[in-house]
Every structure is written in structure tokens, then in C-alpha cells.
Simulated assay, not measured.
Amino acid sequence: MKITVLNIIVLLFALAACAQEDLLQKTENDLLLQNLFDAGNNDAVSCYRIPAIVTAPNGDLVAAIDERVPSCGDLKWSKDINIVIRRSTDLGKTWTEIERVIDFPFGQSASDPSMIVDEETKEIFLFYNFMDLEKEKDVYYLHYTKSADNGKTWSDPVDITAQITKPEWDTDFKFITSGRGIYTSTGKMLHCMVNLSYGVNVFGSNDHGKTWYFIDTPITPADESKIVELEDGSWMINSRVNGKGMRYVHISTDEGKSWQTRPESQLVDPGCNGSIIRYTSVKDGDDKNRLLFSNAKMKDARMNMTVRISYDEGETWSEGKTIYAGSSAYSSLTVLDNGDIGLFFEKDEYSKNTFVSFSLEWLTDGEDGLRKSKN
């Protein structure tokens, strides 16, 4: 066969099409899943884990994750974990190549990304946990980096360990929970920090990240947790609790000085990190208050990634819709600029990390749609 330029072009297009098919998967519900981070396509990386996603101030999407190089082990057992991102400028249809945001020398690792968007300064804060396994094995440090240009460039790391933990916790198993924190209606940034010996504590900033504080009111039972602001200004934390088969909810009406705790039997959970975000608010001119929650909806297995909706500030939840029935674990939700819902989650026993988006109409089988209040 004579090789011509046309033959080569046709071959390249065919290879590109095959690669694209490898990245996309259509579900039974006609959702298009995009595999953003897949270690099977990278011989130099053992696995990608711990997804986090936010919508940047300009509407771009920023998806962050651990790049676990020598093994799939967590921070305490790996000397080379980096934080990497991909960005999308078109609501998740296409994505940039993988970019390393945090890359320390071998022996020092960074893990468990989470983000907060400061709605006033338009900065994105990206938090992670750090360990120097060569010099200070078992000592966890808590850092952040930030971006003022919607995730294109990032600042040097800032260590806030001393501001948001106690000195006696030096060698305790402590970490900022992955996924995301919140920017409240009063201008606070709030996030959750876990100490497995004590519980979960809220930390935050009232000055756009110049300084950080720690609220010394531990919450139990709780492991990896997410905080959301309720319509009346209360704070609600939704927590992973291992071995219970369900989530736990903690509510504070006094900015974290005290908490009321209850098991949430509606939210079946195998002991895995989930995601909860505010979708709409009457205070912002929407017709209804809506919260969204995602997790692996099973009591004893990390499977059945599901998204649910609540119209009464988390008192009751819909049965939800299955996004992916197979193996699935950690997840992170965001609201896209066009009002659609974005979900970034681990699937197929962590081998793939997948993005999907869908409308409120799809989630509610046409029973609900986005409308502004008439008032």
C-alpha cells in the first residue's frame, strides 16, 4: 500500500476518534461521562484520587485531584503525591491538559485538594494537606495556594497549620477535608478540618484569607465532612461516619459555638466522602431554596453514585437519580454558569475520575425547573 499524506491524515483522525471514545461513556440515563483523569493512560502515575471541582468567578470549571505517583496509597504512605488540575472554559465540554499546581521534591507529598471561591475578591483558594516523609514522618501540615485569574496561575503555598490546629495535635492524624468549603452570605470563608482523635472542627477567615481562625468546638461523630449555609444563616455540616450505614448531620445556630447532631437515615452511605452544596436561594431571587447532595448511595459498598435534592433545607431529601450504578466513591458538586449541575467523581475502583453535567429538569424528571421569584 502506498502511504500518502491523505492516508496519514485519515489515520490520525481515526486515532483521535478512538482516543475520544475512550474518554467518553454514555450511561443508561443518556448522560455523557468524561474521564478527566485516568491512570490507565499514564504509565508514570499509579492512580488519581480525591476529586474537587468549583466554578470559577468567570464561569470556568476547575477540577483538582491527587496525582499519586509510586502507589495509590494515601499521604502517610506515599513520598510522591502532587496536586494537578484541568480547566474548562465551555461548561465542561472540553478540558485543558493536566497541569501540576503543587509539585514538591520527592519525599514531600501534597494530598486531598479542596477549594473555596471568594465571591468578593474573585480568588480561588485551593487547600491541601502536606507531609515531609523524609524529615517529619507522621506530621501533617495544612496549606493553601490561591489563584486570582480563574485557575490559570497559582500563588506560592501558604502554611496555616498553626492558625487552625492546636500545638498538641502535632503528630495527630489531621487533615482538611477534600472537596470544597463555602463563602457565606456574611463574607466568611468556612471549611472543615478533621482530627480523627477528636472529631471535626470548623475553621475560617473573615478577611478574605489574610488570617485564619479555628472554632474549638469538636463535632462527633464525624469524619470527612462538608459545610453549607442554611437560608436562616445557620450552618449545617453533613458528615461521613464509618460503620453506621448513613450520614450524620450537625447544625449550629450560633456560628459554631454549639452543635445539634442527628443521624440522617434518609442519606444511606457506606462511609465515604460525599458532597453537599446550595443550588438556589430565595434570598438570591430564586423561586425555591434547593440543596444538592451526592454520594455512593449504598450502606455497605462504594457503588451507585447518586444525586439528591432537598427543598426544605435538608430536612427531607428526594430519592435521587443514579448517575452511575457501578463502583463509585468520592464526589464533588458544582453549579455551572448556565444553571446545570456538574459532578466530578471517582468511578471503577478509582481507576477513572469522571465529570458529568445535567439539568435540574433531568434530575427531577421534568417536575422542577429553574425560575426566578415573582417578588
Rank of each mutant, 00 (worst) to 15 (best):
Gly233Tyr: 03
Lys257His: 13
Ser252Glu: 11
Thr211Ala: 02
Arg240Phe: 08
Tyr324Glu: 06
Ser294Ile: 03
Ser328Trp: 12
Ile219Leu: 02
Pro263Cys: 09
Ser205Phe: 08
Lys297Glu: 06
Leu196Lys: 13
Ile276Leu: 05
Asp287Phe: 11
Gln266Ala: 13
Asp287Arg: 10
Val249Asp: 08
Asn238His: 10
Arg302Leu: 06
Arg278Cys: 02
Ala325Leu: 03
Asn195Gln: 10
Phe214Met: 15
Met298Val: 12
Lys297Ala: 09
Val194Asn: 06
Thr211Arg: 06
Ile227Phe: 07
Ile251Cys: 01
Ser197Cys: 13
Ile276Thr: 15
Cys272Gln: 05
Thr211Ser: 15
Arg290Ser: 01
Asp287Lys: 15
Ser205Asp: 07
Ser275Phe: 06
Asp207Ser: 00
Lys257Thr: 14
Thr220Gln: 09
Asp207Tyr: 04
Arg278Pro: 05
Ile215Met: 14
Asp300His: 13
Val268Ser: 12
Phe203Val: 10
Ser252Tyr: 09
Glu319Gln: 13
Gly271Pro: 00
Asn206His: 06
Tyr330Phe: 00
Met298Trp: 14
Ser239Trp: 06
Ser234Pro: 01
Ile219Arg: 08
Gly199Glu: 02
Val241Phe: 09
Trp235Pro: 04
Met303Trp: 12
Ala301Glu: 15
Asp254Ile: 04
Thr211Gly: 07
Arg290Leu: 07
Asp300Val: 12
Ile251His: 09
Lys257Pro: 06
Gly326Asp: 10
Gly245Arg: 15
Arg290Tyr: 09
Val194Phe: 06
Val200Leu: 14
Ile276Met: 14
Gly274Thr: 10
Gly245Trp: 11
Met236Asp: 10
Lys226Asn: 01
Ser275His: 09
Ser328Gln: 13
Asn242Leu: 07
Gly245Thr: 10
Trp212Phe: 14
Gly320Ile: 03
Trp317Lys: 02
Ala329Pro: 06
Asp287Ser: 14
Ala222Ile: 07
Arg308Ser: 02
Gly245Glu: 08
Ile277Met: 12
Ile309Tyr: 01
Trp317Gln: 00
Tyr213Ser: 15
Asn201Lys: 08
Asp269Asn: 15
Arg240Met: 04
Asn201Trp: 01
Ser205His: 07
Lys283Tyr: 14
Val200Asp: 06
Gly285Leu: 07
Ser205Val: 10
Val202Lys: 10
Lys288Pro: 07
Pro221Asp: 03
Gly285His: 12
Tyr330Gln: 05
Asp312Pro: 02
Thr280Gly: 02
Thr261Lys: 06
Lys244Tyr: 03
Arg290Ile: 15
Asp284Ile: 01
Ala222Trp: 06
Leu230Cys: 02
Asp216Ala: 08
Glu313His: 03
Ser265Met: 14
Thr261Trp: 03
Phe203His: 04
Ser252Leu: 05
Met303Ala: 15
Leu292Cys: 12
Ser275Gln: 10
Val249Asn: 08
Pro270Gly: 12
Thr316Phe: 00
Ser294Gly: 08
Met298Cys: 14
Ser294Val: 05
Tyr213Trp: 14
Ile251Ala: 05
Asn289Ala: 03
Gly199Phe: 02
Glu264Thr: 13
Asp300Gln: 13
Met305Glu: 15
Leu230Gly: 03
Ala301Ser: 14
Pro270Asn: 11
Met298His: 15
Met305Ile: 00
Pro221Ser: 07
Gly314Met: 01
Leu291Tyr: 14
Asn206Thr: 14
Val202Gly: 11
Ile276Cys: 07
Asn242Trp: 01
Asp232Lys: 00
Met246Asn: 13
Pro263Val: 08
Lys297Leu: 01
Lys257Asp: 11
Glu319Ile: 04
Met193Arg: 02
Ile276Arg: 05
Phe214Gly: 02
